[in-house]
């Protein structure tokens, strides 16, 4: 009887139930934020510690992104040098270039004739006239082959090298890539370092927020006890603390964003000067929108998780008596 009487009421009010649920969460979210603003200095201090912890991996990540951008430019310059046999004539060279140009792996071919090579060598070696003593030009003609971007990775370039070494007209083909390989290895290490750093500092963020929430729970011991006494569920009691953790995380993320942006801005002058010397097109990238979103969401999520852990551990210990 009782259940029957209740059912229709519940059904008809179900959309507004969601509405009420949402309103209640909003209320708790706002009141938790309000509570934080009531002790602005303490809140800001905690949030700044969080911000510094988050900004380290975030800043490194952005720098790494910038370095990868440079390495992108360098990769495009990675090349293979094909030294041709001494008795190769011009027609054979033309045929060879035509054939190589058809290969999808190859983007560009520059032909350095024997004479060009000699001139270049004279200029750069400083030997100048000394070479004129020689009866014959000892230098071979060279094809400088630039692979497409996809085939610039160490692995792909090596495959291409093996293929080019089959060429009967080639005396020797060299891959000038050792430094590129090293560079890739270093970037790889740096990425790992950032991941390790991010994990360690995430743990630090969890601990800082966990400890902050633990103190907050202690401060509100009486309130929690009395709330339990009048029949509050655990999730009701948990909610404000979870929102507090969330706000701390988000605030820390915002501070991290500012720290990284300011640091990049301070660095951009000197770096542009430095790269200008090398006529590089390099421009220092700031935090873009996706990175910013990931930074803020990740930080807020860490805050929530830290609070959840602390709340799980410490709320249970408070029981009214």
């Amino acid at each position: 009887m009782k259940a029957d009487a209740k059912k229709p009421v519940k059904k008809s009010s179900s959309p507004s139930m969601i509405h009420i649920w949402f309103l209640r969460h909003l209320q708790v979210a706002i009141s938790s934020l309000g509570r934080l603003t009531r002790s602005p200095i303490g809140t800001l201090m905690t949030a700044t510690v969080l911000g510094i912890a988050v900004s380290l991996p975030a800043g490194m990540w952005v720098m790494l992104d910038n370095v990868k951008q440079i390495s992108g430019n360098w990769d495009a310059g990675a090349s293979l040098s094909m030294f041709l046999k001494a008795d190769t004539d011009e027609q054979q060279v033309d045929e060879l270039i035509g054939k190589l140009k058809l290969m999808p792996e190859i983007q560009h071919i520059a032909y350095v004739t024997k004479d060009d090579a000699l001139v270049e060598f004279q200029q750069f070696s400083g030997l100048g006239q000394a070479l004129e003593i020689l009866q014959e030009n000892p230098l071979p003609a060279v094809l400088i082959i630039t692979p497409t971007l996809q085939h610039s990775t160490p692995l792909q370039a090596d495959l291409l090298l093996k293929q080019l070494n089959q060429e009967p007209l080639a005396d020797l083909t060299q891959l000038d890539m050792e430094w590129v390989e090293r560079f890739h290895a270093i970037t790889e290490i740096a990425i790992r370092a950032v991941i390790v750093l991010a994990s360690v500092l995430s743990l630090a963020v969890l601990l800082i927020i966990g400890n902050t929430i633990r103190l907050e729970i202690q401060n509100r011991h009486d309130e929690i006890e009395i709330t339990k006494l009048v029949g509050a569920t655990n999730s009701f009691i948990r909610r404000p603390f979870l929102y507090t953790g969330f706000w701390y995380g988000l605030l820390g993320g915002l501070i991290a964003w500012f720290l990284v942006t300011i640091s990049l801005w301070l660095l951009s002058g000197p770096i542009e000067k430095l790269t200008g010397l090398y006529q590089s097109q390099f421009r220092l990238d700031v935090l873009d929108l996706p990175t910013t979103v990931v930074l803020l969401m990740g930080s807020a999520f860490l805050g929530l998780a830290g609070a959840r852990i602390a709340v799980g551990r410490h709320l249970r210990a408070i029981e009214p008596d």
Binding site: D222, V230, G231, T233, N234
Partner: peptide, 21 residues
């Protein structure tokens, strides 16, 4: 234990030390 809150809602408790916030 998760039903305890609903049990307590059926019981009003009054204390000598009031337990007000």
């Amino acid at each position: 234990s998760r039903q305890i809150p609903y049990h307590r809602r059926k019981i009003g408790m009054i204390f000598q030390d009031h337990r007000l916030l």
